[in-house]
Nucleic acid binder design. Structure first.
Lengths: 236, 236
DNA sequence: TTCATTGCTTGATAATTGTCAAGCAATCGA
DNA sequence: TCGATTGCTTGACAATTATCAAGCAATGAA
């Protein structure tokens, strides 16, 4: 079930900005201590509060990061190949703040946290790459928080649609990248309200058919959504 | 108005975890390029979207970080001495995501961002300290986001009171550290609703007189608030 | 002191969002 | 093919939160 990572996976991981600058021997020693595990769908691989034993890298499939409190649950992010998660907890050797579950069958690389911390101390290029990555993550969360605090659910949905459209190919139609119920949770609303929100965007030229979204009046939607690079551009 | 930083300020800044490990000459060269500026109250010193020209350090006074969109405004955090802000934007050389205004008369140290980035590249101990700091900041924002998405406004207020009580001295009474209207904005609610929320906590043994909060039934409040270290403990 | 300002509170009302229950369509395994 | 499950939608209703208007108490300047 949990195997040493095959060398064929090294290049994909090496290409990540996080690892691309580190010294060869440090990278190799990280990889040699790493595992790869194949998870079935809907498996909770991490529970919030757990110690962060491994830095995780999604190689294939997808992973939902979510949080719970007092019987409630909310989705925080979806992680897709190829990227890492649980970096901050690994660095600080602190408990994970989020739980993680596979959304589909997924291959995950597991790099022991103590190896990451050792590499972080030994390799200053790696340390610098981690800084850049963490600063990026931090800014992303701040943007999400602005989205949550400054916008109504209808506005959040409208802007999500515009972001997603850009991420697809910029064309008028695209498919939602995950279930609507997860989208609802991510946007901080109930599935019932998401359903109504989609209807609420019809007057602005949005039509929905299953997972397919079509934007018939781009400018109407943009006028309503008022997207801002300081909230919606997650690349800076 | 903007002066070179006097050497008498060096020790306070040097004590910050961020700078404590860096090589003497690197620290000195950062400091020699830095300024200190005294701001009157209620001055907007940074507007979101501005380039991040300086890493800021609050020496005295206090600063509110806030965001705006479409005519709305929300408070994100209050920065108190001695601590830095605008670190992530400085590192990434990206526009500030938040605006900053003084809440009271404040002395702020301004360290040119390019100097910080140079030091970050030259001094690997500094780079490592930045990692730790950013990981901490990231985790704090995640906690705030969990608070926002998983709790009602009454629950957020109850937990805020418990956190604040701990931060004071753990006694039954303490003073709010800022205006109620700012607290309302920070907690993601209107001032009117904050007023009602305080009343809503009376049955759990909370009484309010001006800025003075008194917890008469600690256990009742805790039973209602259900604080969790994974949301409310901002030290890990 | 007196008056204006400011911040907070209160009440009435409206908008938003959540909950519960039911129904429908698509999917899947027996 | 059938029945069961799953995810989404809809409607009715309830809870939460926001808005608007007014009032009150503390503060500060003339």
């Amino acid at each position: 079930m949990r195997k040493e990572m095959p060398e064929s996976d090294y290049p994909d991981i090496r290409e990540l900005h996080l690892f691309s600058d580190m010294a060869h021997e440090n990278f190799m020693s990280l990889m040699r201590g790493a595992y790869v595990q194949a998870f079935p769908p809907q498996i909770e691989m991490i529970t919030e509060g757990d110690p962060s034993d491994f830095l995780h890298v999604v190689l294939t499939g997808s992973v939902d990061l979510f949080c719970s409190w007092n019987g409630r649950e909310t989705s925080m992010a979806t992680v897709r190949p190829i990227s890492t998660f649980i970096l901050a907890a690994t660095i600080r050797d602190a408990p994970n703040l989020m739980s993680a579950r596979t959304l589909e069958k997924s291959r995950i690389a597991l790099i022991p946290s103590q190896d990451v911390r050792a590499a972080f101390n030994a390799d200053s290029d790696f340390a610098r790459a981690i800084v850049t990555e963490l600063a990026q993550c931090y800014r992303s969360v701040i943007k999400t928080q602005k989205d949550l605090k400054l916008r109504t659910s209808l506005e959040r949905l409208a802007n999500f649609i515009l972001r997603q459209q850009k991420r697809a190919d910029g064309g008028a139609g695209f498919d939602l990248p995950f279930e609507k119920r997860r989208l609802a949770s991510f946007l901080g609303m109930t599935p019932e309200n998401l359903s109504r929100a989609f209807k609420g965007l019809q007057p602005y030229g949005v039509s929905v058919n299953g997972t397919r979204i079509t934007i018939k009046e781009q400018s109407d939607l943009e006028t309503f959504a008022k997207p801002s690079p300081l909230i919606d551009d997650h690349s800076t």
